[in-house]
């Protein structure tokens, strides 16, 4: 059951990272394009605004997959010393605190996205670029992360007290 849920979430998390990667590539080309354009007095309009939006995509797109890969930063000092039971408790604390924090964050981000939609929020510059996609990226990226954290929490309970591998890096 948990495994099946994981098999559904993982491709979604991967897709989110992929989108972040595409965003990163876009900001690389745009930045370079703007630099070259500026040399010929033709800067790329909107390069700055699009780069800002892709940043949001990168940061929030990577959240869930980073969780799957155990890449999020934590102080492992006590964890490495702990026995299997204590490790399970610590994992539960980690999952729960993540769910609470990102739950609140997603709730607020959802309200902001709604407001952004209502006022037609867009950047002001030579070109006007809508901010709604970036706002939605926050909600979806953080939301997916919460789903993964919930799944991890269930796994923590299901395998309570069993020894588990912990890999660094």
């Amino acid at each position: 059951m948990l495994d099946r849920a994981q098999r559904i979430i993982e491709p979604m998390a991967f897709l989110a990272v992929l989108l972040g990667g595409v965003g990163l590539m876009i900001s690389m080309f745009l930045g370079m394009g703007d630099v070259i354009g500026s040399l010929f007095n033709k800067p790329l309009p909107g390069a700055l605004e699009v780069t800002e939006s892709t940043m949001v995509l990168i940061v929030f797109g990577g959240l869930a997959y980073a969780q799957i890969r155990q890449r999020h930063l934590r102080v492992e000092l006590a964890y490495l010393q702990a026995g299997p039971k204590l490790r399970s408790v610590m994992d539960i604390v980690a999952s729960l605190s993540g769910i609470v924090f990102f739950g609140l964050l997603t709730w607020q981000a959802y309200n902001e996205a709604l407001f952004s939609y209502q006022i037609g929020e867009a950047t002001s510059g030579l070109v006007s670029f809508p901010l709604l996609p970036a706002r939605i990226a926050v909600v979806l990226g953080a939301g997916l992360y919460i789903v993964q954290l919930c799944l991890d929490l269930l796994k923590d309970f299901a395998t309570f007290g069993q020894p588990k591998d912990f890999e660094l890096g």
């Binding site: 500026s38 007095n41 800067p43 002001s124 510059g125 030579l126 006007s128």
Partner: peptide, 21 residues
């Protein structure tokens, strides 16, 4: 190349042939 911000000042620089940055 002139440093600008917001939406109107870039338009104005663009209009007079300067390059907003």
């Amino acid at each position: 190349k002139v440093r600008t911000f917001g939406s109107d000042i870039p338009k104005m620089m663009d209009a007079v042939g300067a390059v907003p940055q």
